[in-house]
Amino acid sequence: MDSAVLFADVAGSTALYELLGDQRAFQLVESCLSTMSACTTEMHGRVVKTIGDAVMSVFGSADEAAAAAAEMQFRVNQLGTEPSVRLSLRIGFHWGPVVQRDGDVFGDTVNLASRLCDLASKGQIITDRSTALRLSGLYAPSLRTLFKVPVKGKEEEVQLIEILWHTAADEMTALVTRPGTGNAGAALLELEMGDTRAEMGPQRRKVTIGRDLETDFPVRNPNVSRAHAMIERRRDHFVLVDHSLNGSYVTFEGRPEMKVHREELTLVGQGVITFGQPADEALQALHYRCVQAWQAPA
C-alpha cells in the first residue's frame, strides 16, 4: 500500500540540555513530542513511533502529511517560553509504497523520508518532487524548488522541494505594513568571491554555494558539500541556510567567528563567510555587504 511517511525531529535538542539543564530541556522535548503526535492525529495520521526526540508518522495522503507538518512547525514554534529559546523542527516526508508489520512500516519510502528529514534545516519542511506533484493546488504558492541530492540506492538524484509553512502569514504582514510612498529603498546584498560577484534583491532572491560547478559560487574544497549552502532574500532580510556536512563559518564585522551547521542565520551589516572550514584555514571566502537601494519618492 502507498502512504506518506513523515519524520519530524526537534532541532538543536542537544543545545537545549546545555542551555536549560536536563529537567527543563526534557520537559520541552516531551512537549514537542506530544505536540507532534497531536498534530498527526488531528490530520488523520498515525504515529508509528518516537525515536529519541523525533516522531515518525504515516498519512493516507500527501496533503494530510503537509498539513500536519505545517501545524507541527507552527505549534512547536510557540512552545519556547524563555527569550533565549526558539524551538523548531526539521521535517521531511515522502509518498510511496510501504510494508506494514506489527504496527511499524518499512521500505524505501521510509528510508527516503528519513533522509529528507536529515537534509532539512531548522524550521524547514522538505519533500521531493514526486511527492510535491501529489499535493493539491492549495500548496502551490508555498512550494519552492531547492537542489538535487544523491541518495543511496537511487540511480538519479532526488529533487528537493521545500514547503514554506509561514509564507501566508508573512505575505499578509507585508501587505499591511508596506508603505505607499517614500524614499526607503529595497534591501540589497552585495556578494563577492574572487572574480565572481552577485547582487541579491527584488530581482534575485537566492544564490547557491557548493562544490558543484553549477552553483552560483563554486568552492574548490573537499570539505565543502556539493550543495553546501544558499542565501535567500526573505522580505527585507537575507538568510544564510546551511545544509552541509561540515558547516559554514560567518564573521560579522567586529565580532567573533561563528559556525552555522544545518541551520539558518540572518546576515547583518557586512562580513565574511567561509564554507567547510574556518576563515583562517579557507582559501576561498565569500564577502558580503547589506545595503539599501535608493528609491525616489512616488
Score class of each variant (00 low, 15 high):
Leu133Thr: 13
Arg134Tyr: 05
Arg134Val: 04
Leu135Lys: 05
Ser136Asp: 10
Ser136Ile: 07
Gly137Gln: 03
Leu138Arg: 14
Tyr139Phe: 15
Ala140Asn: 09
Ala140Pro: 02
Ala140Ile: 03
Ala140Gln: 13
Pro141Asn: 05
Ser142His: 11
Ser142Cys: 12
Leu143Thr: 04
Arg144Trp: 02
Thr145Trp: 09
Phe147Ile: 04
Phe147His: 13
Pro150Asn: 08
Pro150Lys: 09
Val151Phe: 00
Val151Trp: 00
Lys152Pro: 00
Lys154Cys: 06
Val158Glu: 05
Val158His: 02
Val158Trp: 00
Leu160Val: 09
Leu160Ala: 08
Ile161Val: 15
Glu162Gln: 14
Glu162Leu: 02
Leu164Ile: 06
Trp165Phe: 02
Trp165Val: 03
Ala168Lys: 15
Ala168Met: 08
Ala168Val: 12
Ala169Gly: 10
Thr173Cys: 09
Thr173His: 13
Ala174Asn: 12
Ala174Asp: 13
Val176Arg: 07
Arg178Asp: 14
Arg178Met: 13
Gly180Arg: 15
Asn183Cys: 04
Asn183Trp: 06
Asn183Phe: 04
Ala184Glu: 11
Ala184Asp: 10
Ala186Phe: 07
Ala186Asn: 11
Ala187Met: 10
Leu188Ile: 07
Leu189Arg: 05
Leu191Cys: 15
Glu192Tyr: 00
Met193Asn: 08
Met193Ser: 15
Arg197His: 13
Arg197Lys: 15
Ala198Leu: 14
Glu199Pro: 01
Met200Pro: 12
Gly201Ala: 03
Gly201Arg: 06
Pro202Ala: 05
Gln203Gly: 13
Arg205Phe: 05
Arg205Gln: 14
Lys206Leu: 09
Lys206Trp: 02
Lys206Ile: 11
Lys206Gly: 01
Lys206Asp: 05
Val207Cys: 00
Ile209Leu: 15
Gly210Pro: 03
Gly210Met: 02
Arg211His: 11
Leu213Ser: 11
Leu213Asn: 07
Thr215Ser: 14
Thr215Ala: 12
Thr215Asp: 09
Asp216Leu: 06
Asp216Thr: 14
Phe217Cys: 02
Phe217Val: 01
Val219Asp: 02
Pro222His: 07
Asn223Thr: 11
Val224Phe: 04
Val224Glu: 01
Val224Met: 02
